[in-house]
Design a protein around this nucleic acid. Structure first.
Length: 111
DNA sequence: CCACTGACGAGTG
DNA sequence: GCACTCGCCAGTG
């Protein structure tokens, strides 16, 4: 349940800004979407994404740097790991990736 | 209108 | 570093 449509467009737009090979946290996306502090809403919005959407939802991970397990039972969490790996983002055997190395930094100084 | 539920995050022990 | 609690918003029964 819970298919909130808060600022879905804003959230999707923020997620769409994440470059391949990089990841962003829900909180980070929320901040970019203009709803900082509402990381949950980001997750809810992404959960409502249709399978054919062009939104790189797989580039969004939680603050711990791991793929949040979902309950839809469609194995999307597994798919996310595969998609990320395909972009060069390797998940640690503990199920976590190095945020320090793969976290996307919007507006970096220089370049 | 009330209660429960979700792809979360930060703080505390 | 891990486990637990509280806070946030929106939709459903």
């Amino acid at each position: 349940m819970a298919s909130p449509s808060v600022s879905r467009p804003a959230i999707y737009a923020a997620v769409a800004r994440i470059p391949a090979g990089r990841v962003a946290t829900y909180g980070q996306v929320a901040r970019l979407a203009g709803i900082s502090g509402h990381a949950r809403l980001v997750g809810y919005a992404l959960s409502a994404l249709p399978e054919g959407s062009r939104v790189p939802w797989h580039r969004v991970v939680n603050a711990k740097g791991e793929i949040s397990p979902r309950s839809n039972g469609l194995g999307h969490d597994r798919l996310q790991a595969v998609l990320l790996r395909r972009e060069g983002v390797w998940i640690d055997r503990t199920g976590r990736l190095s945020l320090a190395a793969f976290r996307w930094r919007p507006r970096p100084r220089g370049t």
